[in-house]
Amino acid sequence: MKPYERKQLLERVEREGATVGASIPEEIEVQGEPFALRSFVFEVKEAETGERERVQEAKKLLRRERLERLERLEEGDISVAEGEALVNAIVGLDRALNALESLGSKSVEQEMEVQERMDTKRWYSFLSEALGWDDDRGIRR
Protein backbone atom coordinates (compact mmCIF):
# COMPACT_ATOMS: atom_id res chain seq x y z
CA MET A 1 0.00 0.00 0.00
CA LYS A 2 1.26 3.45 -0.86
CA PRO A 3 1.55 6.07 1.90
CA TYR A 4 -1.16 8.28 0.40
CA GLU A 5 -3.57 5.30 0.24
CA ARG A 6 -2.89 4.53 3.90
CA LYS A 7 -3.48 8.19 4.78
CA GLN A 8 -6.82 8.20 2.94
CA LEU A 9 -7.96 5.08 4.77
CA LEU A 10 -6.93 6.50 8.15
CA GLU A 11 -8.79 9.71 7.39
CA ARG A 12 -11.95 7.68 6.68
CA VAL A 13 -11.68 6.04 10.10
CA GLU A 14 -11.17 9.31 11.94
CA ARG A 15 -13.84 11.29 10.03
CA GLU A 16 -16.43 12.87 12.31
CA GLY A 17 -19.43 11.17 10.72
CA ALA A 18 -17.72 7.88 9.87
CA THR A 19 -20.36 5.79 11.62
CA VAL A 20 -23.33 7.55 10.00
CA GLY A 21 -25.12 4.94 7.94
CA ALA A 22 -22.69 2.21 9.04
CA SER A 23 -24.14 -1.01 10.34
CA ILE A 24 -22.95 -3.07 13.25
CA PRO A 25 -21.15 -6.17 11.92
CA GLU A 26 -23.05 -9.42 12.36
CA GLU A 27 -19.94 -11.13 13.73
CA ILE A 28 -16.31 -10.14 14.30
CA GLU A 29 -13.26 -11.94 15.53
CA VAL A 30 -12.09 -10.76 18.94
CA GLN A 31 -8.83 -12.19 20.22
CA GLY A 32 -9.12 -15.07 17.78
CA GLU A 33 -12.67 -16.00 18.81
CA PRO A 34 -15.88 -15.26 16.88
CA PHE A 35 -18.13 -12.74 18.62
CA ALA A 36 -21.76 -12.22 17.56
CA LEU A 37 -21.57 -8.45 17.85
CA ARG A 38 -24.91 -7.35 16.37
CA SER A 39 -27.00 -9.79 18.38
CA PHE A 40 -25.06 -8.89 21.56
CA VAL A 41 -25.72 -5.16 21.10
CA PHE A 42 -29.43 -5.68 20.46
CA GLU A 43 -29.70 -8.17 23.33
CA VAL A 44 -28.20 -5.83 25.93
CA LYS A 45 -30.04 -2.85 24.47
CA GLU A 46 -33.34 -4.61 25.08
CA ALA A 47 -32.36 -5.79 28.57
CA GLU A 48 -30.57 -2.55 29.58
CA THR A 49 -30.79 -3.29 33.30
CA GLY A 50 -28.51 -5.77 35.01
CA GLU A 51 -26.14 -5.97 32.05
CA ARG A 52 -23.76 -3.21 33.18
CA GLU A 53 -20.79 -5.51 33.94
CA ARG A 54 -21.23 -7.48 30.75
CA VAL A 55 -21.50 -4.29 28.68
CA GLN A 56 -18.41 -2.77 30.31
CA GLU A 57 -16.37 -5.92 29.58
CA ALA A 58 -17.59 -6.00 25.98
CA LYS A 59 -16.68 -2.33 25.49
CA LYS A 60 -13.16 -3.01 26.77
CA LEU A 61 -12.76 -5.92 24.35
CA LEU A 62 -14.14 -3.92 21.44
CA ARG A 63 -11.90 -0.92 22.17
CA ARG A 64 -8.87 -3.21 22.35
CA GLU A 65 -9.87 -4.86 19.07
CA ARG A 66 -10.39 -1.45 17.45
CA LEU A 67 -6.96 -0.30 18.57
CA GLU A 68 -5.28 -3.45 17.25
CA ARG A 69 -6.97 -3.05 13.87
CA LEU A 70 -6.13 0.65 13.74
CA GLU A 71 -2.46 -0.10 14.51
CA ARG A 72 -2.45 -2.72 11.78
CA LEU A 73 -3.92 -0.17 9.37
CA GLU A 74 -1.34 2.45 10.42
CA GLU A 75 1.76 0.28 10.43
CA GLY A 76 1.02 -3.09 8.84
CA ASP A 77 2.29 -4.34 5.50
CA ILE A 78 -1.16 -4.73 3.96
CA SER A 79 -2.83 -4.34 0.58
CA VAL A 80 -5.41 -1.68 -0.22
CA ALA A 81 -8.15 -4.32 -0.13
CA GLU A 82 -7.04 -5.43 3.34
CA GLY A 83 -6.95 -1.77 4.37
CA GLU A 84 -10.51 -1.26 3.10
CA ALA A 85 -11.65 -4.30 5.08
CA LEU A 86 -9.95 -2.95 8.20
CA VAL A 87 -11.59 0.46 7.76
CA ASN A 88 -15.02 -1.16 7.43
CA ALA A 89 -14.38 -3.30 10.50
CA ILE A 90 -13.17 -0.31 12.56
CA VAL A 91 -16.18 1.79 11.55
CA GLY A 92 -18.46 -1.13 12.44
CA LEU A 93 -16.75 -1.43 15.83
CA ASP A 94 -17.18 2.32 16.36
CA ARG A 95 -20.87 1.99 15.53
CA ALA A 96 -21.26 -0.83 18.05
CA LEU A 97 -19.34 1.11 20.70
CA ASN A 98 -21.57 4.15 20.13
CA ALA A 99 -24.64 1.97 20.61
CA LEU A 100 -23.21 0.44 23.79
CA GLU A 101 -22.16 3.85 25.13
CA SER A 102 -25.72 5.08 24.85
CA LEU A 103 -26.95 2.34 27.19
CA GLY A 104 -27.62 2.99 30.82
CA SER A 105 -27.90 6.24 32.62
CA LYS A 106 -25.04 8.66 32.87
CA SER A 107 -24.77 11.41 35.36
CA VAL A 108 -25.31 14.95 34.14
CA GLU A 109 -21.63 15.71 34.77
CA GLN A 110 -20.49 12.77 32.65
CA GLU A 111 -22.84 13.74 29.86
CA MET A 112 -21.52 17.31 29.94
CA GLU A 113 -17.92 16.08 29.78
CA VAL A 114 -18.68 13.91 26.77
CA GLN A 115 -20.47 16.80 25.02
CA GLU A 116 -17.58 19.16 25.75
CA ARG A 117 -15.02 16.70 24.34
CA MET A 118 -17.12 16.21 21.22
CA ASP A 119 -17.54 19.98 20.78
CA THR A 120 -13.78 20.47 21.13
CA LYS A 121 -13.10 17.75 18.58
CA ARG A 122 -15.57 19.26 16.09
CA TRP A 123 -14.07 22.73 16.60
CA TYR A 124 -10.52 21.44 16.05
CA SER A 125 -11.63 19.57 12.91
CA PHE A 126 -13.23 22.74 11.59
CA LEU A 127 -10.12 24.81 12.31
CA SER A 128 -7.83 22.19 10.78
CA GLU A 129 -9.89 22.20 7.60
CA ALA A 130 -10.25 25.99 7.47
CA LEU A 131 -6.57 26.68 8.15
CA GLY A 132 -5.29 23.89 5.91
CA TRP A 133 -3.46 21.94 8.60
CA ASP A 134 -2.12 18.56 7.53
CA ASP A 135 -1.79 16.96 10.94
CA ASP A 136 -1.91 17.48 14.70
CA ARG A 137 1.28 19.54 14.69
CA GLY A 138 -0.39 22.39 12.80
CA ILE A 139 1.72 22.06 9.67
CA ARG A 140 0.16 23.95 6.77
CA ARG A 141 -0.55 22.30 3.44
Rank of each mutant, 00 (worst) to 15 (best):
V108P: 06
S125V: 02
M112D: 11
D119Y: 03
K106Q: 14
V20Y: 04
V55N: 02
R69N: 14
S128E: 13
R12Y: 01
A85K: 10
N98H: 12
E109M: 10
Q110W: 06
L103H: 01
A96I: 10
M112E: 14
F40Q: 02
E101F: 13
G50N: 02
L86I: 02
A89R: 12
A47V: 11
G104Q: 01
A81I: 14
P34M: 00
R141P: 07
G32Y: 03
I24M: 10
D94A: 07
E111M: 13
T120L: 14
E84H: 13
Y4S: 15
V114Y: 02
G92F: 00
A96E: 08
E11V: 01
K106D: 10
D119V: 01
E16P: 03
L9V: 10
T49C: 08
A58Q: 02
L100R: 06
S39H: 04
E5W: 03
V114Q: 15
A89V: 06
E14S: 08
E43H: 13
S79D: 06
A22T: 07
Q115A: 15
R117I: 05
Q115L: 15
D77K: 15
L73M: 03
E57K: 13
L73N: 00
G92R: 01
A81K: 02
M112V: 15
P34E: 04
V41T: 06
A58M: 09
G104T: 11
S125C: 08
E57N: 11
R122P: 00
I139V: 15
V80P: 06
W133L: 11
D94W: 02
A85R: 13
E113G: 08
V13C: 08
L73V: 08
E16F: 11
V13Q: 06
M118P: 01
Q31T: 06
K7R: 12
V87L: 02
G132W: 02
K121V: 01
E26A: 11
V20A: 14
A85G: 09
L62W: 07
E16M: 07
L10I: 09
R141N: 09
K121S: 01
E71N: 14
E27G: 02
S102A: 15
V80E: 15
M1G: 12
A96S: 09
R141H: 12
D77V: 11
Y4D: 14
L86N: 02
I90H: 09
V87I: 10
Y4T: 10
K60S: 12
G76F: 00
W123Y: 11
E101Q: 12
Q56E: 14
V41P: 00
E16W: 09
A89N: 05
G132K: 03
G92Y: 08
Y4V: 12
L97K: 08
D119I: 04
K2A: 14
F40H: 04
K106S: 15
M1K: 04
L100E: 10
R95Q: 10
A96W: 04
E68M: 11
M1F: 08
L100H: 04
A89S: 15
A96H: 00
S105N: 15
R122S: 13
L70D: 09
R117W: 12
T120V: 07
R52S: 09
L61A: 13
K59H: 02
G83A: 07
E46P: 01
R54D: 08
A18T: 05
